[in-house]
Design a protein around this nucleic acid. Structure first.
Lengths: 236, 236
DNA sequence: ACCTGAACACCGTTCAAGT
DNA sequence: ACCTGAACACCGTTCAAGT
């Protein structure tokens, strides 16, 4: 409802599709020069998002950085929403060890994939809220595909496959969400702890366990993941 | 970075704190009449968000619905961000069976809490992206507290408590995210399936398992949850 | 095929002021 | 203590036009 999809083909043939896009001219990846292109736009959008967050991305600002007029962008792109979709997907590409070594423990393989997925999102924290309000781009689908394939090869029965995929996926998404909302909240996390610390403590259990101060993100992440993997394990 | 927190006390004593707020005049809950109040503002913001999504909430639109000038809002509220924070937290309150029956199976208790949590978010889908970009309000903290207390009472050792809480929490958050992004994506989900269906199918595993068409959300949710709970179980 | 500026209908928020 | 309008510095996008 909120997110306008770019699905509805518009009259003009905008180069909005997720595709390799023909290598332009001579120099391969010099993003800094003149002619506007989908790649330059997307790359610059990512820069802007990294630098100033979701609200920092503005069509005018984007055009400025690119040295073009605002309206030029609209030839390459449908929408501001289109820019978001493209930027999001571009940042979520999986450049994994190509197939790992095959023979390796599937558990290692999966943990690696999921940690990379999590790390990718954390590198661009704006991706997390975007992810929860837009459709899945091709890079996300690829990751799901790879996850499914690996689980399947590891012996998970077809009838259990969806639960397995979603459980792991959901866990990673949730862990990442939790992590990012903590990053933004560091200051009033402290406030919460102090404010309600003494007498009528409102959150005694949480305070006792120092839940909000448990900084061992990767450790906690791994432990929960192991729990899940243990449940999913086919052989043992 | 994106979210300005309302933490920094401003000069004027805005009634922005999360508090019961003194019952105003005679009629208790008739939200429709004249005088502006934090409660009316928040309730109307929620209406607006439900009706028109995140981008639909506008200070001017909000003021319109309330029959006041835009700037009047700013006496009660710091910011537009403040409105978001308040609306979010207000929608996440836990009205659970008050303590359940105590004697009951802790598993039932926890599943109930988590399903309620998930349902609450799904009732107001805009809450999900907001949740991933703002700090935790008191109602969220209360839910974490309750979850922790229940697990603790069920026999989870203190040293395992944080992992237990976060695993469950993350799982629920992730499941909800996944669910909402599918709701928005129904159309091009179909497109994906068809578009790449035949020859060079890009996502064979996903297609074989019909992952994107697995509509049994509650079933899948429960199964993954059971997996986790099995891993966390103290006694058995 | 690609880019542009002017114009429109919106935004959030400051400020100085009213009661 | 509560509410207001005018004004400012922005937005995204349509349109008609240029090359």
């Amino acid at each position: 409802m909120t997110a306008k999809r770019s699905g509805a083909r518009s009259k003009r043939p905008r180069r909005t599709e997720f595709q390799p896009a023909p290598e332009p001219r001579g120099e391969p990846h010099l993003l800094l020069e003149r002619p506007l292109s989908l790649e330059r736009i997307v790359a610059t959008a990512v820069e802007l998002l990294d630098a100033r967050g979701i609200d920092g991305l503005t069509m005018r600002r984007l055009a400025d950085r690119l040295g073009s007029g605002v309206m030029s962008l609209y030839w390459h792109v449908d929408d501001k929403d289109g820019v978001f979709d493209l930027a999001l997907d571009s940042v979520l590409e999986y450049r994994g060890s190509p197939q790992m070594n095959g023979a390796e423990d599937w558990r290692v393989e999966i943990v690696h994939m999921l940690e990379d997925w999590r790390a990718g999102m954390l590198r661009h924290p704006w991706s997390v809220p975007l992810l929860s309000s837009r459709a899945l781009g091709p890079n996300i689908l690829s990751r799901l595909e790879l996850l499914g394939r690996t689980l399947s090869r590891a012996g998970v029965a077809d009838k259990d496959l969806n639960v397995a995929i979603w459980s792991l996926w959901n866990y990673v998404m949730g862990a990442t969400i939790t992590r990012t909302s903590f990053d933004l909240a560091d200051s009033d996390k402290a406030a919460t702890q102090q404010h309600h610390a003494h007498p009528g403590a409102r959150y005694p259990t949480i305070q006792r366990s120092r839940l909000l101060f448990d900084d061992d993100w990767v450790g906690t992440f791994r432990k929960g993941l192991d729990l899940l993997l243990a449940g999913l394990a086919p052989g043992k």
